Simulated assay, not measured.
Amino acid sequence: MANLPPSLSMGTPFGGPSTSAAGAPANKDRNLASAEQLVLDLSNPELRENALLELSKKRELFQDLAPLLWNSFGTIAALLQEIVSIYSVLAPPNLTPAQSNRVCNSLALLQIPDTLISCFHTLQCVASHSDTRMLFLKAHIPLYLYPFLNTTSKSRPFEYLRLTSLGVIGALVKVDDTEVISFLLSTEIIPLCLRTMEMGSELSKTVATFIVQKILLDDVGMDYICTTAERFFAVGRVLGNMVQSLVEQPSPRLLKHIIRCYLRLSDNPRACAALGSCLPDSLRDGTFSNCLREDQIARRWLQQLVHNVGVGRVPSHQGGGFEHML
C-alpha cells in the first residue's frame, strides 16, 4: 500500500509492535489484514460500497484507521468522489420539469444510501484523529460538506445529509483546538449552522448548536461573534427563536446547548448588556423548570445566566451594549 508510514506498514499491527500476550498478535494481524484490504477496496468502484459499509461498522476495532485512510493512495479522493457525485441533486431550480420529477420520485423512495453515510462516518474518523485532523483541515475537506448544509429541503434524505455533515464538523470541534476554530471561522460555518438551527430537525439543530457552542467557548470564536453587533444579534436572534419553539415542544438536550451558548455570551460585557433586553423571558420565569428537572448542570447554568444578565445590564444611555453600534 503506497505512502504508508512505517508504523502502518503491511507487517506491523495497528498500535505498534506485536505483543507477547497469547492470541493478541494473531487478532491484531487479522484486524490489520482486514482493514488494509478494505481500504484498498475503496479505490475500486465495484468494491467500494461493501468496503465503506464494513469500515463504518468495524471502525472501532481498527486502531489508527484514520492514518491508514489518509496515507493510502487514492482513498480520500475516492471518499470525496462519493460526496461530489450527489451534488447534482442539490439544486432542483437548475433542473428541467422532467428531470425534476424524476429526481423527486427518486428521492421519495430514497433513504440516504448506506454507502454515503458510511463515507461520512469514515471522514469523521479522519477528522477526529490527532494525526490526521490538521491535514484534513489543510486540505479544506470540510468545504466539500458545506453544500449539504446549504440546502433548505426538509425531506428526510436532505435532513440526513445535513445531520451527517454536521457530525463531521462536530468531530472537529470536540477536540477544543483553537486552530480548528480559526479555520472554521475563515469559512461560512456560522451562517450555515444558524440556518440549520432555524430549519433543521431537532437532532440536527442540536448538533449545529453544539458546534456554535464549541466555537463560542474558544476565545477566538467568542471574539469573532462579539466583534460586531451584526454577528451577535444574528446568533442571538436564532437562539431566541429556538427558545420560543421549545416552549411548545421542549427538548432538554437542545435547551441545554442553547443555555450554554447564552451563558458563554454573558461572559462578554457588551454581549451581557445586550442580553438584558433580548434574553427570552421564558428563560427567566421558570417556563422550563420541568424540562430541566433532571439536569442539574443545565439548571445551574441557567441560574448563572440569569444572574449574569441581571447584574451585567448597563443603562442604554451609557452605551454599554451593542445597540449603539447598529
Rank of each mutant, 00 (worst) to 15 (best):
V235C: 03
D218W: 07
D285M: 06
N241M: 02
E60C: 13
N94G: 15
S289D: 15
A21H: 10
P147E: 09
V314N: 00
V39H: 03
V247D: 05
R102Y: 14
A234W: 00
K205N: 12
L38M: 07
Q213K: 15
R30E: 04
V220T: 13
S277P: 00
S251W: 02
L265V: 06
L116F: 05
P67K: 06
G200C: 00
F322C: 13
R270S: 09
L217K: 04
E159L: 13
I258F: 12
F148S: 12
V126T: 14
P250G: 11
S88G: 09
S7D: 00
T209F: 02
A274D: 03
V175C: 06
L217D: 03
K256L: 01
L47G: 09
A78N: 10
T12Q: 10
L137D: 02
E159M: 10
F288Q: 01
K174F: 11
G170T: 08
A234C: 00
S289A: 13
V309P: 07
Q99C: 04
S277N: 04
V306T: 13
D64A: 12
S106E: 08
K28S: 12
R156S: 08
C291L: 03
L65G: 07
A273C: 11
C291G: 02
E49Y: 14
D223Y: 11
F183L: 05
R253W: 00
I215G: 00
V126M: 08
V311R: 14
R313W: 08
R156M: 10
L149A: 08
V238F: 03
R133K: 09
H257V: 00
L79W: 02
A98Y: 07
Q81M: 13
E248C: 05
C226I: 01
Y146M: 14
L161I: 10
A298N: 07
A271N: 00
A91T: 15
I215D: 03
C261G: 01
S43G: 15
G23Q: 05
P17R: 04
L255D: 01
V84G: 03
L292P: 01
R156Q: 09
Q99I: 09
L265Y: 03
D295R: 02
L32C: 01
V235H: 01
I141R: 06
D131V: 10
P142Y: 11
Q296T: 13
G286C: 06
R231Q: 05
P25M: 15
R231S: 06
Q249F: 06
R59V: 15
D29V: 09
M197A: 10
I112K: 11
R231A: 09
L32H: 01
N101H: 14
L95D: 07
K57V: 14
P13D: 08
S72Q: 10
R293I: 15
L61N: 15
G200H: 02
P113S: 07
